[in-house]
């Protein structure tokens, strides 16, 4: 059995040249959001143009990895063979990210205790030397 959050039969994530720097930062355990260098608007997923000022110039801002649950769902059906159920998908509002939210999972959590607004913190799952996935757990676990 896999020690990973999802079984090995899950397809690997995909990146293009726009999103690759985000994945490279993740592999170094840095959670970043893309920041427009013209108007400071932050965005995720990465995109070639700022949707606010339409500038193509951007850099990467590292965030703390703390945040709060914005919404969630507890999934009771497997999407990969041999998967542990249920699992929790959540949208996390990231602290210090200019309002950016990220889709992720809640781990180490009792599904009955999840509440919108509750604080969470980042935990990395290393998939291989070049790939890490950010997931979140209740703060202080």
């Amino acid at each position: 059995m896999s020690e990973r959050f999802f079984p090995d039969s899950m397809p690997p994530p995909l990146a293009d040249t726009t999103t690759l720097p985000w994945w490279q930062a993740a592999a170094e355990h840095r959670l970043v959001v893309q920041r427009c260098t013209s108007c400071e608007h932050t965005r995720l997923p990465p995109a070639p143009v700022c949707p606010e000022c339409r500038s193509a110039d951007s850099d990467w801002k590292e965030v703390s990895g703390r945040g709060e649950v914005y919404t969630y769902t507890i999934v009771h059906r497997p999407i990969a063979a041999g998967q542990e159920l249920p699992y929790v998908i959540a949208v996390i509002a990231l602290e210090g990210a200019g309002g950016v939210r990220i889709i992720s999972n809640l781990v180490d959590v009792n599904p009955d205790e999840i509440e919108i607004g509750s604080p969470v913190e980042l935990v990395w799952e290393d998939m291989s030397a070049d790939l890490a996935i950010p997931r979140f757990r209740p703060m202080g676990r």
Binding site: F6, M10, L14, A15, T19, I89
Partner: peptide, 10 residues
Amino acid sequence: ASIGFSMPYG
């Protein structure tokens, strides 16, 4: 590329 930000979370 977009799915890269949803699929890894199931």
